[in-house]
Amino acid sequence: MGNPVDYAISHGRLTIATLFFLLVAGFAAYLAIPKEAEPDVAIPIIYVNVTQRGISPEDAERLLLRPLETQLKSVENVKEMRSAGFEGGGFVLLEFEAGFDSDVALADVRAKVDDAKGDLPRDADEPNVSEVNLSLFPVLVVALGGEVPERALLQLARQAERAIEQIPGVLSADLRGARDESVEIIAEPMLLRSYGISLDQLTASFAAGNSLVAAGALESTSGRFAVKVPALIETPQDILSFPVAVSGDAAVTLGDVAEIRPTFKDPTSITRVNGKPAITVEVSKRTGANLIQTVDATRAVVEELRKTWPGTVEVTYSQDKSKDIRIMLHELQNSVITAVLLVIVIMLTV
């Protein structure tokens, strides 16, 4: 066989059949292959974060970071270890050598952090060990706002969060700008004194009573049954009827000596969209999932829920990574179509 180009031109039908087969195979692969903006690249960085409420940066360095650094310095293949303390906690950042095994490194770091827990203050929160993975960053942010009460907007945001997490390609849906609900108890000093209850006694009885007590098991001819004393507070009525003092058959409840007000915890962060308060849902996709399909499914779920929401609720989308991928795919399609047309024209004119 001489020149491959001459052979392809002289055997036009074979060339066109081969081209058609490649187009069909390429189109099938195009539909099946995941569309990614940021592929799953292993970044050699592991991040350890630990917090303690009210601790200063200096105390965080001495009480939180030093015990962690002492244990983490024995981890293998560490290129550089950096740490910094801030108001309320600190972090240790480990950079590994290129080509490291992320699973082994993550397991080693978690084991060393567990060894350091005994040297941390008792009031310190659980250390958080995480790796940097670009593919886990949010691919879409859904913002909910408008002239809606905060409590109602929070319920709608949680409804959207639960629905979005049911999508197969979604790894997580995290709320931002949402304050946790809490209950404010305002004790009446005059009523406490009239019942002979001190404020310390009220606090101690409330803290001790809000628990689930296991009372063993009861065996009978029908079988073995677990017995428990349900004392967990789940509804506002449980708070009002909570006993704080007992005298004979009479009980003084919390509703008799205090006022109960539903409220929210103090905000730790503020989220605004177009200058207005809002609650956002950050959507992250699973590794290997099709980004475009995941974003489209998320939008479809939110729009379906939107039909049942009040008309004053405003829904906006931001940080949509599928837009850039659509542009790149469109350019790729144009290039492929142009190349195919050129090949067909050359084959027909020869």
Rank of each mutant, 00 (worst) to 15 (best):
M1D: 12
S10D: 12
G12Y: 06
R13M: 12
A17D: 02
A17Y: 15
T18K: 05
V24N: 05
V24E: 04
G26Q: 06
G26N: 05
A28Q: 04
A29M: 08
Y30S: 04
A32Q: 10
I33P: 00
P34G: 05
E38H: 09
V41T: 04
I45R: 04
I46S: 00
I46L: 12
R53F: 09
R53H: 03
S56L: 08
S56W: 06
P57L: 09
E58Y: 10
D59K: 13
L63M: 12
L63A: 13
L65Y: 05
P67V: 11
P67Y: 09
L68K: 10
E69C: 10
T70R: 15
K73D: 13
M81G: 03
F86H: 03
F91I: 06
L93M: 14
E97P: 00
E97G: 02
A98I: 04
G99Y: 03
L106Q: 11
V109W: 05
R110N: 11
K112G: 06
D115V: 06
G118P: 01
L120T: 01
P121M: 01
D125T: 03
E126T: 14
P127L: 11
P127G: 05
L134Y: 12
P138T: 11
V141H: 02
A143V: 09
A143C: 05
E147A: 15
V148Q: 08
E150S: 10
L153C: 07
L154P: 00
Q155G: 13
A160L: 01
A160F: 01
A163W: 03
I167Y: 02
I167H: 03
L175R: 07
S182M: 15
I185Y: 04
I186G: 02
P189V: 15
L191V: 08
L192D: 00
R193F: 07
S194N: 09
S194E: 11
Y195C: 02
S198R: 08
A207Y: 08
N210R: 04
V213D: 03
A217P: 01
A217V: 15
A217Y: 13
L218T: 11
V229P: 00
A231P: 00
E234V: 13
T235S: 13
T235H: 11
P236L: 12
Q237V: 13
I239A: 07
F242G: 05
F242T: 06
P243V: 09
V244S: 06
V244P: 03
V246N: 09
A251N: 04
V252G: 08
T253E: 07
L254H: 03
G255A: 10
G255K: 07
E259H: 12
I260T: 00
I260R: 02
F264K: 05
K265E: 10
V273C: 02
G275K: 10
T280V: 12
E282D: 11
V283N: 02
S284R: 15
S284Y: 00
R286M: 10
T287E: 12
G288H: 10
A289D: 07
A289Y: 07
V295L: 10
V295D: 02
V295S: 05
V302E: 00
E303V: 10
W309G: 04
G311M: 08
T312N: 15
T312P: 00
V313S: 04
E314Y: 05
V315I: 15
V315E: 01
T316L: 11
Y317K: 02
Y317E: 00
K321V: 05
D324N: 10
L329T: 05
S335H: 13
L342P: 03
I344T: 08
T349G: 08
T349M: 14
